[in-house]
Design a protein around this nucleic acid. Structure first.
Lengths: 154, 154
DNA sequence: GTTTCATGTAACTTTTATAGTTACATGATT
DNA sequence: AATCATGTAACTATAAAAGTTACATGAAAC
């Protein structure tokens, strides 16, 4: 599967922007993410379109949060990226076949619910939470409790 | 995102195999799925390795279920395919950064739980359930099937 | 035993999605 | 005006999935 790094890039950038007093340039952000400034502009451009970020040209320009980090949830970012991250393909065989139709129903329902689970996880964490993980001690902060831990069979 | 059609191919094939009295060839299955016989062998080969299917060479050879369709769950098939269907990429940025570490924790937990939801959906449906969807209404009753003249009563 | 049928698999090609890059326009600050 | 930074289109590169070719293996039919 061809992986998709847009969410990771977006969250990492937002986390650093939350900690920065001044705007950050695409070039600085690209360096932190080991990628290219144009890629940064493409991804952050979606967040700007969603009202999460603002950008300025010229001297002292760059990117900054459009509202406080505590008021930007990871789910907001996930929605702003607006890409399907689940790669289960629905069949190309003719849906007149009852098997195909039944499969479509099943897979669609499962994917919808899986997306809902992702969303509910992401809705509980804000960019401020991610940024705090860096200021705290420089390492991973546990996720906010949302579900009972340890009951995932996968 | 690069879509992945292996699960759809596998489920559709198994559904028809559940209804067939005789083995089906890769060529016949490929025609039903509008794909190539070698692709069918690649995908069904994984199901054989997982003990869900058996294959025979030569005349009257082909594929058949290794056990009754009611005893093969969609989750069994999903597990046999054994591919990651969630394309959220964990960051390539150095994990010494606390933001990256926190993000990894969050995304991993969310993906794990999303996978669990898929699994629980798929565990509730068997291949027999899918096949029933065809016999119930759906499509042409067990008349002469499309793939071979004469002796293949599906 | 040879022909035919079908799977098994490696190797290659094609397709497509993501990421990376180049080039240039636009606007803001100095 | 010069510089800095974003905005975007167009192109290239990489990687994953599917499609295809080629050939080996084994089983049944003749």
């Amino acid at each position: 599967m061809k992986h998709n790094g847009k969410l990771a890039l977006a969250l990492h950038s937002l986390g650093h922007l939350a900690l920065s007093q001044t705007p950050m340039t695409s070039e600085a952000i690209a360096a932190q993410n080991q990628t290219h400034p144009v890629v940064v502009r493409r991804v952050l451009g979606r967040l700007r379109a969603a009202g999460l970020l603002q950008s300025e040209k010229g001297h002292a320009g760059g990117w900054r949060l459009a509202r406080p980090a505590a008021q930007i949830s990871v789910a907001d970012v996930y929605a702003a990226i607006d890409e399907p991250f689940l790669s289960l393909q629905l069949p190309k065989a003719p849906p007149e076949c009852g098997i195909v139709a039944a499969m479509q129903t099943l897979v669609s329902a499962a994917m919808t619910e899986a997306e809902a689970v992702l969303h509910s996880h992401f809705a509980r964490q804000s960019i401020a939470d991610l940024a705090q993980a860096m200021q705290g001690h420089g390492h991973a902060a546990p996720e906010k409790p949302a579900f009972l831990p340890g009951d995932s069979p996968l």
